[in-house]
Amino acid sequence: MSRILPLTLENVTVRRRGKRLIGPVDHTLGADGLTIIIGPNGSGKTTLLRVMHGVERLSEGAVRWAVPDQEAQHHQAYVFQTPIMLRRSVADNLRYPLQLLRRPRRETEAAVALWAERTGLEDRLKLQATRLSGGEKQRLALARALIRDPQVLFLDEPCANLDGASTRAIEILLGAALAAGTRIVMTTHDLGQARRLAKDAVFMLHGRIHETGEAPGFFDAPQSDALRAFLRGDIVT
């Protein structure tokens, strides 16, 4: 259960250089569960996620948490579509979010060891993070996001480029976080994964929320033609 939720998006629009990236979007994120955002490339999934996290400047509208923004910011984590690695060792990357909070050294080291083990990076700890493989970087980024024990976790295609085993490993981690009460919002292009994980889902098209619904109805009985076509695997533009 997340104290900082629900999150409300009211009439949110993001424009850059005269181009409308998303909006107007109205949506409310409930206090628990896992929301999947799907949609074609360029439909605004990343932008929507960034808006929710508060790292994208709004052109119109408002984003409101249940608590003051300052407090809400402390309890969120975000995994970017392309993992951002600090030019440090894997261990130092994991330490970083806790060092920012000035957590005691012992506590930090214990958390680093725990998350390295959970993400299978134990034998990579001393390696320069920028040298990790693509899949390892994604795992490190996830561990670094979860190490602060966030109430809300945003994930932008966390399993892109991963093989079946790595995808499964990450889904298990997400399942554990979910069971521990973490609210998860993620985008994916893997419809199988969407079905496996979603409690509810959002379909983005042309920068707007085209359809929303609870799983499994969202996947089994889509209301709009566009979503039906998208789920069938047709090219939706």
Binding site: V55, I84, L86, Y96, L100
Partner: peptide
């Protein structure tokens, strides 16, 4: 390179 991460981590 770091911008988004450092903003996200509320530094």
């Amino acid at each position: 390179e770091y911008h988004d991460l450092l903003i996200s981590l509320n530094t």
